[in-house]
Design a protein around this nucleic acid. Structure first.
Length: 810
RNA sequence: GCGGACGUGGCGGAAUGGCAGACGCGCUAGACUUAGGAUCUAGUGUUUUCACGUGCAGGUUCAAGUCCUGUCGUCCGCACCA
């Protein structure tokens, strides 16, 4: 069969007959199957797209044949830096290049033969989409979940933009690799931390990879401890967060982050020069020594002292960059005797080390630091003798009475910084008025349109800030001249709600109709890369929870079940990259073998969640297999059904029904490689069966089943053969085959006979044989094997195995 | 440094604690061919046999690739998280 040719034929027919058109009013149960939509960066689909979309489509087709009303949309995450960088380089406007790339990708996705319903497409860069992204922003703003704050941010000098912490890789800009520096700017944030607790709790009920759940949990980083207030000698106070309140008596100094707002007031005139120099050093620390695993701790004395609330002792306040301003309170109480980092720091700067926890066991009291939790408090006055756990509680409670401490939970998670000083994104719908302050754009004025004629050369200011026509507006509140916010939103904002827009993508009255999406959501199966574990997947969950609380939807989680596809590597086992020259382009394989063979090889050659190196031989083997199926079909339809046998073959039926069962299960778990292996086994069995005189009608019914099982993996090929054997269009309107239990059982079971755990022989016996009957059979028929041995134990597991434990006769 | 995952033939990869290596690639031999990078048939973990084999060393079990402990290696995530 000339696959590339017949694929065109079926793609046209599928489109003409609107086969994949989604029916919102169907009474079948819905199944929302979604792949993470793609960024239209390069013009062409790469192997990774195929691996993700092609096999998720196999899953979607399977669910359709299982009787579900499958919703399988596709769209484009079309805003973002690459288009803008490309424009800076080539002068081609981001809008033009993006629209062109989308057109190419749409065409290629159609050539894949995937079952998307394009009527539900979304493109995030179009006004009819970003209008509602802006609407989302306004709702978050109105509900106190969007706020503006000045904060130390990561600044990429090359991209001239702010990066979220999550987007900095090894101190380098994730996009361009330039070392990131620190800079203070006023930015918009989304208050994702408000949902920290629920974002952890909600993970429990999700059918997600455990690894991904754990990563999100660690990312949110819940930590329970105490907040303790220290007075500053000479006036003022500050709080520290600690998980080890039990060691409070062992505090010999405190450490403040060099970026902390209190640092200047704490610094004495004598220390000013040293502290200023250290602040300067710390702000560059990202750049230097970033990759060193054993970076030496550094710090400087501020000149001030704090009073330890538990014992009134005066301890020095140091500044050191091993304390982060953005975590906890930005100040740490240092207990060098019981903390590795404090110990190292104290050693280096000659600060005192005082032990307050003793080990329970002999020999544990020699070395410091002692960080075990198995210990009792010493040198702690009235708290001596308490365990670590008791000590934490007792000391915090004691200070709580005087308002100097409280139990506290903190999270590692930080609020989501969404401002970008870039052009190619959704404008932030806020107007800055000299008199009224920040004023939200009235909803009826949305969208705040992104102007086309903009100078987006990077020069440190937002491109929109230089566009007077855009910037100048009237304050919606007082009507006086005002200025728009010149920034655009992080593209993760666009992708945090697109799955809500798909089912109602043409709505021009609202972002989504709750009546529709409460029925269509949550997404039943979400498929995409593991690299989104902590960002996109967390942001989308936050959006759903926030909009649920505002009353715009009534479910708690966006994605019930999640699968990550693995990565297809180059033939050399390395990640594909242009610089390594190991990029495999789908196009040449598709024009040679067809998209079905290409997709099916991706399913067969890898464990889906693992991925692995590309192998040319693999795709030939799949093409060969499809040829084999075609020859088999031709042969069976060339033979005369009126001659030959008329009975059904038990062995073939056994293989057939086992195959149905296995393929069904494997498709549910994205275990495409084993499913295809089972199909090959069935094909082999049918070859064998039809080699001699056989029942043609029976063989034909087996083939009809085989084609239906094969259809999700090789849709064009199966549709073509389905037509050739005279069946009605379309195979995808057929029900997925079901197996019958009665064909799965064999009359006899072959048991392995183990002696001392090693297989020595095997025997067959009725499937109904009891444990006693099996034992009797073995003792009778294998008596010679046991002669000369005493039988110690007989392990007989019906349906599985027989193991006889023996020892030589005394 | 912390957290997580993974180590199975020449290769991709299979194995609810129960016959390791399904299925396929590659390879070997044969058949059919003017031809074969087509197709079909047989074989293919190591070892002549006993036997040995899932990174290495122990352990639990009648039975371990699978569970436990330690160790080595590879990969991923996070970077001093108090």
């Amino acid at each position: 069969m000339n696959l590339p040719e017949i694929e065109k034929k079926w793609q046209k027919k599928w489109e003409d007959t609107r086969l994949y058109s989604f029916d919102r009013n169907s009474d079948k149960p819905k199944k929302y199957v979604l792949e993470m939509f793609s960024y239209p960066s390069g013009a062409k689909l790469h192997v990774g797209h195929w691996y993700n979309f092609g096999l998720a489509d196999t899953y979607a087709r399977y669910q359709r044949m299982k009787g579900y009303n499958v919703f399988h949309p596709m769209g484009f995450d079309a805003f973002g830096l690459p288009a803008e960088n490309y424009a800076i380089k080539t002068g081609i406007h981001p809008y033009d290049s993006t629209v062109a790339n989308i057109a190419t990708m749409e065409r290629q996705l159609k050539e894949m033969g995937a079952s998307f319903d394009w009527d539900y497409e979304v493109k995030t860069c179009m006004p009819d989409y970003y209008k509602w992204t802006q609407w989302c922003f306004l709702q978050l703003y109105k509900n106190g979940l969007a706020y503006r704050a000045s904060a130390p941010v990561n600044w990429c000098p090359k991209c001239n933009t702010v990066l979220a912490n999550e987007q900095v890789v090894d101190g380098l800009c994730e996009r361009c690799g330039t070392p990131v520096i620190r800079k203070h700017l006023t930015q918009w944030f989304f208050r994702i931390t408000k949902y920290a607790e629920e974002l952890i709790d909600g993970l429990e009920g999700l059918d997600w990879p455990e690894k991904t759940k754990l990563m999100q949990k660690n990312w949110i980083g819940k930590s329970t401890g105490s907040e303790i207030t220290f007075r500053i000698e000479g006036g003022g106070e500050f709080s520290v967060f600690t998980t080890r309140a039990d060691t409070l008596n062992g505090v010999t100094y405190v450490v403040i982050s060099p970026e902390h707002p209190l640092i200047d007031s704490l610094t004495t005139p004598e220390q000013k020069e040293a502290v200023e120099a250290y602040k300067e050093y710390a702000s560059k620390a990202n750049e230097i020594e970033r990759l060193s695993t054993s970076r030496e701790k550094t710090g400087v004395f501020t000149g001030s002292y704090a009073i330890n609330p538990i014992n009134g002792r005066k301890v020095p306040i140091w500044a050191a960059d091993y304390v982060l301003a953005s975590y906890g309170t930005g100040v740490v109480m240092a207990v060098p005797a019981h903390d590795e980092r404090d110990f190292e720091f104290a050693g280096k700067y000659g600060l005192p080390i005082e032990r307050v926890v003793a080990g329970k066991n002999e020999g544990q009291n020699d070395d410091l630091p002692f960080t075990d939790y198995e210990g009792v408090l010493v040198n702690s006055g009235q708290f001596d003798g308490l365990t670590v756990t008791e000590g934490k509680k007792a000391i915090t409670s004691f200070l709580e009475k005087t308002g100097q401490a409280q139990f506290k939970t903190t999270y590692r998670l930080r609020d989501w910084l969404i401002s970008r000083q870039r052009y190619w994104g959704a404008p932030i719908p806020i107007i800055h008025c000299e008199d009224c302050g920040d004023v939200p754009v009235p909803e009826e004025d949305l969208p705040v349109a992104l102007p086309y004629d903009v100078d987006f050369t990077p020069d440190g200011t937002s491109p929109l800030a230089k566009h007077e026509g855009f910037m100048n507006c009237k304050c919606p509140r007082c009507g006086r001249p005002a200025r728009r916010d010149p920034d655009t939103m992080d593209t993760f904002v666009c992708s945090s709600w697109y799955f809500l827009r798909y089912p109602d993508n043409r709505d021009d009255k609202m972002a989504w109709d709750p009546k529709i999406i409460n029925r269509m959501l949550p997404v039943d199966k979400y498929v995409g890369g593991a690299e989104h574990a902590c960002m996109h997947l967390l942001y989308a969950r936050f959006f759903v929870k926030a909009f649920r609380d505002m009353g715009y939807l009534s479910f708690d989680e966006p994605f019930l079940s999640l699968t990550h596809q693995g990565t297809i590597l180059g033939p050399d086992g390395e990640k594909m990259s242009k610089s390594k020259g190991n990029v495999v382009s789908p196009d040449e394989y598709i024009s040679k073998y067809g998209s079905d063979a290409f997709r099916m090889y991706l399913g067969f050659g890898f464990a889906y969640v693992e991925g692995g190196p590309w192998n040319d031989g693999g795709i030939r083997s799949v093409a060969k297999y499809l040829d084999r199926v075609e020859r088999l079909v031709n042969k069976i339809w060339a033979d005369d059904p009126s001659v030959g046998r008329t009975d059904e073959d038990r062995t073939v039926n056994l293989v057939l029904h086992r195959t149905i069962k296995a393929v069904d299960q494997d498709l549910n778990t994205f275990s495409f490689n084993t499913a295809i292996a089972r199909l090959m086994e069935l094909t082999n069995a049918l070859y064998k069966y039809t080699d001699e005189e056989y029942n043609v009608s029976f063989a034909r019914s087996c083939i009809r089943t085989l084609l239906k099982l094969l259809a999700p993996f090789a849709p064009h090929f199966s549709e073509e053969l389905w037509e050739q054997i005279g069946e009605d269009y379309s195979i995808f309107n057929q029900d997925f085959p079901t197996y019958e239990e009665k064909y799965l059982v064999e009359d006899e079971i072959t048991y392995p006979l183990q002696i001392n755990g090693r297989v020595k022989d095997r025997f067959s016996i009725s499937k109904d044989a009891t444990k006693e009957e099996i034992e009797e059979y073995v003792m009778k028929n294998f008596s010679d094997v046991f002669s000369g041995f005493d039988i110690v134990k007989k392990v007989i597991v019906p349906g599985r195995i027989v193991n006889i434990v023996v020892k030589p006769k005394q």
